[in-house]
Design a protein around this nucleic acid. Structure first.
Length: 598
RNA sequence: GGCCCCGUGGUGUAGUGGUCUAACACGCCUCCCUGUCAAGGAGGAGAGCGGCAGUUCAAAUCUGCUCGGGGUCGCCA
């Protein structure tokens, strides 16, 4: 071993011990005849002092040290001089009086400083990811992730779950997301697909009698990237036989409470997890993944708006749209510029615009509002009494700002939900120590594609309808509620699950509604349906994103909680992937690349 | 695929038609310095403003295209 102690370890109790450390030079402070360096490894920082009176040779060598050099240091742990302690460091009461210095490896000056409190362009960080990961914050993210996954494994192992690996090279099932394809050399012209999730495989494992399965599973989807989406992500995939929805919810809840409380000591958690229906979530928050750490719930003003006679409102509501709003407390004095910023957010969420009603805090109450107390474009079009009624319904008080969007309900909800999040950040309403889980239940099983006017599965086509809704599959598909649930954390959708269909007849009716021909079903799902003919146990489960959970727990984006992520254009700047390959490789695969551009 | 923001020494920013062969902070280099820990002091090097094409007497600044990063709508069962 090149060391016997790690940098974060020495304490006053170690004083007078001679130890050997190894690590990176975090910083050098050269006082001429006295040189300090902060030595860093993943465990922390320790100050090393080079004094020519202690060891002239070591001091002379230390003059050459620079940031990020890798060194081995032997020395005595000594108590720091009175008043020279550093309370910011756990090791700050002691220092190492160096008697020997060995340079294990010098370093070029890094492209950015290895510190937590700097902002560097993502491309630069990813190009030098190995340096970026030296930052304590990034190491802490890796460590937390490790701990979370280990806790999941431990918990599920204790309860009889079996971790089973499923293939990465599998078959394309071309609905849902785009697949990543892998060409087959042995079968030229044919392709494997990387799994979008192990969904069908885990259901087969249930038929196999595995009973309780889980996997920390990599999933691949070739869709556009976001701050919360990477081309590959990891999910906790689990499935259980002989269970009902409540059994899965209970297990997931207990598991996530255990993991969160163990991984983040002192966390504030609401137990049991709140539950609400999909319908309620949309009504109250305009989102199926609401963040419950703050209020500002939405209200619907369509009826008041339509009766007001204001042309914009009439057009929207008459055209089947809606008018909804929420109140930002204490923001009635927002200047034009700030409101314009909010309007931009509404527009980038798809809304045509945003209306507001700013209420002066000089009014005694909503009922006592005078026209002078109100700033709003609708003021000259809408009766004062109607504005008061709107303010009352929105729960506004004098001094508040009501944000209002009119349009198709989907757009209105998206925009208001985004604005609600923005206001929570602006008003600093989020307690960073709070982790807020939520089960969203009772999702509709089918949704109508407004363009094609075809019914599609909201989740996937193996999710079971409520038994009492089976008869509506053909007559009123939109009203069929599934045994389907989402787990949400701090406004982030962690994932979803369901009780699966194990009844051949119901499965065929679902396929029929979605418009799959018998041939298409056989081609895509024949293997699964055949398996179900050999005694499939009732089963259900969930797939819950690990990256998303880490995002929620750290409050950072997905690129911060993945060791080697890709940019928004799905590029890895470190490896420069994707890349062209040798002609011979293509030849072997029987692939000819058609040159379009470049 | 659409829309929005950003791109200036190694890093982060300022400069938004001429006074800019570009300013500041950190970093880097040299020298001084025995108690610093964002050490301090003195001095110094380092970019021609992502790229291309325009507009203009004059472009880091304006326009178009393009490349790269980020956000967002669509998309992501």
């Amino acid at each position: 071993m090149l060391r016997d102690t790690e940098c974060g370890e020495p304490r006053v109790s170690d004083v007078s011990k001679t130890i050997t450390l190894a690590g990176w030079v975090n910083r050098r402070r050269d006082h001429g005849n006295l040189i300090f360096i902060d030595l860093r490894d993943r465990t922390g920082l320790i100050q090393v002092v080079f004094n020519p009176k202690t060891n002239e040779e070591a001091h002379r060598l230390a003059e050459n040290l620079r940031s990020e050099w890798v060194v081995q240091i032997r020395g005595e742990v000594v108590k720091r001089l009175d008043g020279a302690e550093n309370p910011d460091l756990p090791t700050g009461d002691v220092e190492i009086s160096a008697s020997e210095l060995i340079v294990l490896n010098p370093s070029k000056t890094p492209p950015f400083e290895i510190r937590d409190d700097i902002e560097v362009d993502d491309n630069t960080r990813l190009t030098y990811r190995y340096l970026d990961l030296r930052r304590p914050k990034m190491y802490a993210n890796l460590e937390l992730r490790h701990r979370v996954v280990k806790l999941m494994r431990d918990y599920l192992d204790e309860r009889g779950f079996l971790e089973v690996e499923t293939p990465i090279l599998t078959k394309s099932t071309p609905e849902g997301a785009r697949d990543y394809l892998v060409p087959s050399r042995v079968h030229p012209g044919q392709f494997y697909a990387l799994p979008q999730s192990p969904q069908q495989l885990k259901q087969l494992l249930m038929v196999s009698g595995v009973d309780r399965y889980f996997q920390i599973a990599r999933c691949f989807r070739d869709e556009d990237l976001r701050g919360d989406r990477q081309p590959e992500h990891t999910q906790l995939d689990l499935e259980m036989s002989f269970v009902e929805q409540e059994d899965i919810l209970k297990l997931v809840e207990a598991l996530y409470i255990w993991v969160t409380e163990k991984a983040i000591p002192g966390v504030q958690l609401q137990k049991p997890f709140p539950r609400m229906s999909y319908h309620e979530a949309i009504e109250r928050f305009g989102s199926d993944k609401p963040d419950l750490r703050y209020g500002m719930e939405l209200c619907t003003l369509s009826d008041l708006a339509e009766d007001s006679g204001f042309g914009v409102f009439k057009t929207v509501v008459g055209g089947g749209g809606t008018v909804r709003a929420f109140t930002a407390p204490g923001c009635g004095d927002y200047p034009r510029k700030t409101v314009d910023e909010l309007t931009e957010i509404a527009k980038s969420s798809g809304a045509h615009g945003m209306m507001f009603i700013a209420l002066s805090n000089e009014a005694e109450s909503i009922d006592a509002l005078e026209p002078d107390h109100i700033r709003s474009v609708i003021k000259s079009h809408v009766e004062l009494d109607t504005i008061k009624a709107m303010a009352n319904r929105a729960g506004a008080k004098p001094g508040d700002l009501i944000l209002m969007i009119a349009g198709p309900s989907g757009v209105v909800n998206t925009a208001l939900s985004n604005l609600r999040g923005e206001m929570a950040r602006r008003l600093d309403l989020i307690d960073p120590n709070e982790v807020s889980y939520l089960f969203v239940l009772d999702f509709p099983l089918f949704e109508l594609d407004p363009v094609s006017e075809k019914w599609g599965a909201m989740h996937h086509m193996f999710s079971s309808p409520r038994p009492e809704h089976v008869d509506m599959i053909e007559t009123d598909p939109g009203a069929v509620i599934g045994q389907l649930y989402d787990l949400v954390c701090n406004g982030i959708e962690l994932g979803s699950g369901s009780i699966r269909i194990t009844d051949r007849e119901i499965q065929e009716r679902v396929f029929a509604l979605i418009g799959y021909s018998r041939e298409a079903v056989e081609e895509r799902f024949g293997h699964l349906l055949r398996a179900f003919e050999y005694g499939a146990p009732p089963h259900g489960g969930a797939g819950l994103g690990i990256d998303r959970l880490l995002m929620a727990l750290t409050g950072q984006n997905i690129r911060e909680v993945v060791a080697f992520p890709k940019t928004q254009t799905a590029v890895d700047p470190l490896f420069e992937a994707p890349s062209r390959v040798e002609d011979e490789q293509l030849e072997e695969l029987g692939i000819v690349v058609r040159e379009t551009a470049k």
